[in-house]
């Protein structure tokens, strides 16, 4: 089985260790991971702005690059949701490559949970961790049950990260409120975005978390920006880094 790693553009540029941790994690579980060259972006920033014409070539390029793999794994729920749920309008319904890529692209935790069915891990992360559930992971990919929904669902992110030894979960008061990143929303509505982010950070700090973890680095980029500006006493880490037992930095 050939597995490709899709590294979202901002992770490649700004958070390479998240991708390294993802790669090492998959390799430690015996997956032979390829990193197809030429990959850039899934097209979400353009799509979420409403710019279909600008999204289409980027989406088609994505499918071309990843069409020959049995599975594509991505350390971002948001980018995965874009490929799985929002590509249809750029392809013919019977386009086999599109069908294949959109159904075989997985968010990292989802891949570990549903495909690899990982049951144990040997890494350790002896810290108080609180989970920030990314909205697209939660409400588009359904990686867990949203607090609004009464459809019972397992929390795939929490399930796999809980396999890490010594981790101590802390639950924020609002279990799945949006952080206010929202892609271009963060700059279109800077004040609202900032208020939303601050409220999330305060919630996680108030319940005594050391590490605010998420399966989406984009939420964390926004939250980290606020945390560093305001020198708040909490760190952010991607779940791949936690699962690899990276030190808090």
């Amino acid at each position: 089985m050939s597995v490709a790693l899709f590294v979202p553009c901002y992770i490649d540029q700004f958070y390479p260790d998240v991708a390294v941790a993802t790669l090492e994690l998959l390799e430690s579980l015996g997956v032979d991971v390829e990193f197809p060259s030429g990959q850039t972006c899934c097209g979400q920033p353009m799509a979420n702005t409403g710019c279909n014409a600008e999204t289409a070539p980027v989406a088609r390029r994505f499918v071309e690059i990843f069409a020959d793999y049995d599975a594509v794994v991505c350390p971002s729920g948001s980018c995965t949701a874009m490929v799985r749920h929002h590509y249809a309008e750029y392809f013919a319904a019977d386009d086999a490559a599109f069908q294949h890529v959109s159904t075989r692209t997985f968010e990292l935790c989802e891949y570990l949970h549903d495909e690899l069915k990982v049951e144990q891990m040997h890494t350790s992360f002896p810290h108080k961790v609180s989970l920030h559930q990314s909205c697209h992971g939660l409400r588009e990919l359904r990686l867990g049950q949203s607090s609004e929904s009464r459809v019972v669902r397992e929390n795939k992110v929490k399930n796999v990260v809980s396999l890490v030894n010594d981790i101590q979960w802390i639950t924020p008061e609002r279990s799945d409120e949006c952080c206010g990143f929202g892609g271009t929303f963060a700059v279109n509505e800077p004040e609202v975005s900032t208020e939303m982010g601050r409220a999330r950070i305060a919630d996680h700090i108030n319940v005594g978390s050391e590490v605010l973890a998420s399966a989406d680095m984009s939420c964390l980029m926004h939250l980290q920006g606020l945390i560093r500006r305001e020198k708040s006493p909490i760190k952010v880490m991607h779940v791949a880094q936690i699962m690899m037992g990276r030190p808090i930095h």
Binding site: I11, F14, P16, V187, G197, G225, R228, R229
Partner: peptide, 18 residues
């Protein structure tokens, strides 16, 4: 972005380079 937020700290190399 930077009115209320820090920009990410730029790493020495990208994942592609790594």
């Amino acid at each position: 972005w930077a009115k209320t937020r820090e920009l990410p700290e730029p790493p020495k190399e990208t994942f592609t380079q790594w």
